[in-house]
Nucleic acid binder design. Structure first.
Length: 619
RNA sequence: GCUUCGAUAGCUCAGCCUGGUAGAGCGUUACCUUGGUAAGGUAAAGGUCGCGGGUUCGGAUCCCGCUCGAAGCUCCA
């Protein structure tokens, strides 16, 4: 912020016309002030509330020295070439006005073209320039964010029989991972300092890696990783479509001055990627909410249409987390987020929909190979909501059939009255939220979303925000952590069969058997079983070993015996999960695999079918 | 953002303390090998030791600054 302060005999100004869309709504009247310190102010990028207080402190010092008691705050863009977005500038100017200790504090209208006359006193201290920068550890934390840290929470554990026990009185001996979550969230105590195991695995399996040429937290996905990610994306989308969500696609960037965005944007200004485009400041979405709300705003809805559900899988949502907070696939700056909003006519409809989505989320995680023993449920809600709807929480804990963590707030601070999350607990003691749903009582009004009720009166819907799986990258993180959990227990790590980049690896014993191997592989691929062939000039033992290192569930070694028997004969199949070599026909193997992956999306191999044709991606 | 640690071959890392010809394993390439269920053999290619400065006859190595990365902290709408 730059402040040009002038000690004046008098200042007179008249707003003549609105200059920008965000201009204040005021009646344009001429104002004349005598014996005043006129502070011409340009609010710059990165300025925040701390700048407002610092500026007022400095202005106070000047006022005292001059013996002046009248202050005029005059927004003046021409002092800087690096201005803050209009809405933020207005917020800060308003904050300065409110913080002023002078009873006669004037502020000229923001966003208006003004004519003005000024008479500056002729003494040495009459003119000065101050430059104020934001301080503190995170320069542009908003008011909302700092207020958030002051929220008072009450923590409980609720058991399936409905008992609520204050956290400090609960005995965790039988629920160690819930204790991890509880400590993690309430005491803000974190786990060990081991490197997260999934990072090494994501590299070794050629799934994903850091991209040094991008910003931190923006990953590259190799063919194997892209295949896995794409299958998960398709599966989640399919599940939400079957549940009744209708898929839309919305822009990834929004105008930070758009009236509906202001509140969202200002809440976390330091956490956005922003882009300048022809003088407008755009920010990259950090969720799918705006896009869907802006669509719903333009719908003509009746109560008969509700509940109505919109869905988008955002690739990507962006959150510019602090650099030190990023961690492998667990915490990113660009991530893929399925987000399904249900517009509900009233609270009872919202509550019954919440229940459906809780089960949807549970099923989705289960089908992806993330079971209930790997995650813990947290429910956060306001005291009022709890008192009026105790059975809602009770119902959730019964469905989960394990104790859950409850965080209760005296008053509503966020836009929701209730939120639940499934928190994955990893092997190094970290909790990471996957699925979530919220009951939002604010944004229907805020985004002007309306439906007409049975009395022909417009109403704002209650909105549920559900991500049935959480970020797709996090699902992969959880699958890799599951695998590393198995490793620690001395078991063989695996992916769910439908997600394996290669489901069957064929290893020909001898060059003569390559034609048969090729015939076999192409038959299986046509039958939707991802099959490849390792015909490299390597020893049999080495090729089997490498297939095992890739976690390939089935390895078929074909020699002259199999080639002679043809497609009808029995094959010698190494079953990784069963831990033995089985003799089975091709038809039986295909039908076993097809049975196991039934209902899941399928894609063909995303690599050359012959290993000799593949570049080495990772060691 | 703060603290700590790190940056040497495509990858994983040794060498640095104690300055003097740039190392290993894996991978890649070629040849040999034709092997029946977790590593067959031989050889070759491959490096501006992150960038800049300083000390020194001489710096991957010691000193200073910078850049980038990771972990932890704070944080996670």
């Amino acid at each position: 912020m730059r402040i040009l302060h002038l000690h004046c005999d008098h200042v007179e100004f008249t707003p003549t016309k609105k200059e920008i869309p965000a201009a204040e709504d005021i009646a344009p009247e001429t104002v004349r002030v005598e014996e005043v310190l006129a502070a011409f102010i340009a609010v710059e990028k990165g300025d925040d509330d701390t700048v407002a207080s610092k500026a007022m402190f400095q202005i106070g010092n000047v006022m005292e020295r001059l013996g002046c008691t009248r202050l005029l705050l005059y927004p003046y863009a021409h002092l800087s070439a690096d201005l803050a977005p209009a809405r933020i500038a207005l917020d800060i100017l308003t904050a300065m006005q409110q913080q002023s200790k002078y009873s006669e504090t004037y502020r000229s209208a923001f966003g208006w073209t003004k004519s003005y006359a000024i008479h500056v006193k002729g003494h040495p201290l009459a003119e000065g320039l101050k430059i104020v920068r934001s301080g503190g550890k995170d320069g542009s934390e908003s008011d909302a964010l700092s207020a958030e840290s002051k929220i008072v929470s009450y923590w409980y554990i609720m058991t399936p029989d409905g008992t609520m026990t204050p956290l400090k009185d609960y005995n965790f001996t039988k629920n160690q991972s819930l204790e991890v979550l509880a400590r993690y969230e309430s005491a803000k105590k974190r786990g060990g300092d081991d490197r997260p195991p999934h990072v090494a695995l994501m590299k070794r399996l050629a799934i994903a890696d850091y991209e040094p040429a991008s910003d931190q937290g923006n990953m590259r996905f190799y063919p194997n990783g892209r295949l896995i990610k794409s299958l998960i994306e398709r599966y989640v989308t399919k599940s939400v479509r079957e549940y009744g969500g209708f898929e839309v696609e919305t822009p990834i960037m929004y105008d930070s001055d758009h009236p509906s965005m202001i509140k969202y944007f200002n809440r976390f200004p330091a956490r956005q990627y922003s882009i300048d485009s022809e003088g407008r400041q755009l920010f990259l979405r950090f969720a799918a909410c705006f896009g869907q709300f802006l669509i719903a705003h333009d719908f003509q809805m009746s109560y008969k249409n509700l509940p109505y559900k919109l869905y988008e899988l955002t690739r990507y949502s962006f959150r510019r987390e602090q650099s030190g907070e990023l961690a492998g696939l667990r915490r990113l700056r660009a991530f893929t987020m399925p987000d399904c909003h249900a517009f509900c006519a009233n609270m009872s409809q919202a509550i019954s929909e919440l229940d459906v989505r809780f089960n949807l989320s549970k099923d989705v995680l289960h089908e992806m190979g993330i079971e209930q023993d790997r995650y813990e449920v947290a429910v956060r809600l306001t005291e009022d909501f709890y008192n009026e709807n105790k059975d809602v929480v009770l119902n959730l804990v019964r469905q989960h059939n394990k104790p859950i963590l409850v965080e209760m707030w005296k008053e509503r601070f966020f836009y929701f009255v209730l939120k639940w999350e499934f928190n994955y607990i990893d092997s190094v003691g970290r909790a990471t939220s996957l699925s979530t749903d919220q009951i939002d009582v604010e944004n229907g009004d805020h985004f002007g979303i309306e439906f007409v009720d049975s009395n022909n009166k417009p109403q704002n819907p209650i909105i549920l925000h559900n991500s049935p799986s959480g970020a797709i990258e996090r699902v992969i993180y959880a699958l890799l952590e599951n695998a590393s959990h198995k490793l620690k227990k001395g078991e063989k790590p695996t992916f769910p069969l439908w997600l394996c980049p290669t489901q069957v690896r064929i290893v020909p014993v001898h060059d003569d058997t390559i034609p048969f191997a090729t015939k076999l592989a192409s038959y299986m691929n046509r039958r939707m079983v991802r099959t490849d062939i390792d015909e490299r000039n390597e020893s049999l033992g080495k090729r089997v070993r490498e297939a095992e290192k890739e976690w390939i569930p089935y390895i078929i070694v074909v020699g002259s015996k199999e080639a002679a028997n043809g497609l009808d004969g029995e094959l010698s199949v190494r079953d990784r999960r069963g831990g033995s070599i089985i003799n089975i026909t091709i038809e039986q193997l295909i039908s076993d695999i097809r049975e196991e992956v039934r209902g899941k999306p399928w894609a063909m191999l995303n690599q050359p079918g012959l290993l000799s044709k593949r570049p080495q991606i990772m060691v």
